[in-house]
Amino acid sequence: MTDRSFIRHVVFFSAKDRADIARIREGLAQLADIPHSRHFEVVENSGVDTLSGEVDVVVYAEFDDAEALAAYKAHPIYQKSIDVVRPLREMRIAADF
């Protein structure tokens, strides 16, 4: 294991309807305006790994500590993003490490 002094936050999303993938990506992209992350990106799954096609969009972010991650989730833009994305998504899986 690497010794790191930050938290990686990775969230995988699948769309109920593939036609909504761009709207999901746009809804998640507004999270970049929250100031608590040291790095933030939203990308569509490239689909290079043909053994798994369940994931459509990925959020990857890095935070200095648990407090920064908590502040990110408490920010009003976070709820705004949820309001856009939740009705469009089938699955959401998050991991913090």
Rank of each mutant, 00 (worst) to 15 (best):
R4Q: 15
F6G: 06
R8N: 14
R8V: 15
V10L: 13
V10H: 10
V10G: 06
V10T: 11
V11D: 01
F12E: 07
F12L: 15
S14Q: 11
A15Y: 07
K16H: 08
K16G: 11
D17Y: 07
A19C: 06
A19W: 12
D20Y: 08
D20L: 09
I21G: 04
I21T: 10
A22I: 11
A22F: 08
A22D: 15
A22K: 13
A22H: 13
I24R: 00
R25K: 15
E26S: 13
E26Y: 09
A29K: 07
L31A: 05
L31H: 02
A32S: 14
A32T: 07
D33H: 10
P35M: 05
P35D: 03
H36A: 08
H36R: 07
H36N: 09
R38Y: 07
H39A: 15
H39V: 11
E41T: 14
V42Y: 09
V42W: 10
V42N: 12
E44A: 11
N45P: 06
G47P: 04
T50Y: 06
T50V: 15
L51Q: 13
S52K: 12
G53Q: 09
G53N: 11
G53M: 07
G53E: 11
E54P: 02
V58G: 03
Y60R: 12
A61I: 01
E62F: 05
F63C: 00
D64T: 15
D64K: 15
D65F: 08
D65N: 14
A66V: 06
E67K: 05
A68C: 07
A68F: 00
A70C: 04
Y72A: 00
K73G: 01
K73D: 01
K73R: 15
H75Q: 02
P76Y: 05
P76L: 04
Y78T: 00
Y78R: 03
Y78D: 01
Q79K: 04
Q79N: 04
Q79Y: 03
Q79F: 02
K80M: 02
I82G: 05
I82P: 01
V85M: 00
V85K: 02
R86I: 07
